[in-house]
Design a protein around this nucleic acid. Structure first.
Lengths: 128, 128
DNA sequence: CAGAATCCGGATAGATACTG
DNA sequence: CAGTATCTATCCGGATTCTG
């Protein structure tokens, strides 16, 4: 194996095939959580169930469309359960599924890191 | 406080002002990690330092432009350090900063959850 | 009340060509 | 080798309108 002046091997010990990391569970989950509203909705639903317009009012700034879309994605991925009450007018309740609830723990760990270190990130950004 | 037939209070105990969650450290960090390449690059750089084209070869499918942009963002946010060796041809090495290294731990926790539960998500998606 | 449908602008990301 | 510059296709998300 040839090396450069830096001592870094030029041959790769672990090449990453596209098919692998595109299906990477971690990347997939991170992208699921990384959008604009998902995490906030999960944390709200982690407190208690919410109804649609209740969420709409709770999350200042979210559009009806994005609230619907984000909830649909979470429902499709099995993190949120949607229950329709056939009343007039209709009422729909959203709650975390057991799977979604289990997600609260590792998210909290990352949230803890974020709270602790976000200042450093902001400081680094401030330097350029 | 009035309640509905579902027993859910209509008054919100915890309204979420836009200014708050838009600056939310957790949302900020999650969005930082949630893009297409960031997590993969962090995990690679968590193993050892890499040079630019070495990363380009390691991450099959990434464009030169996106590799540059993603690394720049990570550098700007203080998670990755960039060292230039004034050789001919030039050589640039990327490594995790201490801040970036500290991120490996909570990311691993979330990664563990992802590995454990990704099948359930995929299964849920499969049902619709 | 809880949405669906449509339209649209800005951001995102890939491909390509060029350079110190 | 390690980028930059440019162009372009696509996606994301907001606003608006309409409905069972």
């Amino acid at each position: 194996m040839s090396t450069t002046h830096t001592g870094v091997p030029t041959a790769l010990p672990h090449p990453v095939p596209a098919a692998e990391y595109q299906a990477c569970p971690v990347t997939d989950v991170l992208q699921l959580l990384g959008d604009k509203w998902t995490l906030l909705l999960i944390s709200l639903l982690g407190q208690r169930p919410y109804r649609f317009n209740e969420l709409h009012r709770a999350v200042d700034g979210i559009s009806q469309r994005m609230l619907t879309r984000t909830l649909r994605t979470l429902e499709t991925d099995g993190l949120v359960e949607r229950e329709v009450f056939p009343t007039v007018p209709p009422s729909v309740e959203y709650r975390l599924s057991p799977l979604g609830t289990s997600l609260l723990e590792p998210v909290s760990a990352l949230a803890g890191w974020a709270v602790t270190h976000h200042g450093e990130i902001v400081a680094a950004r401030g330097r350029r």
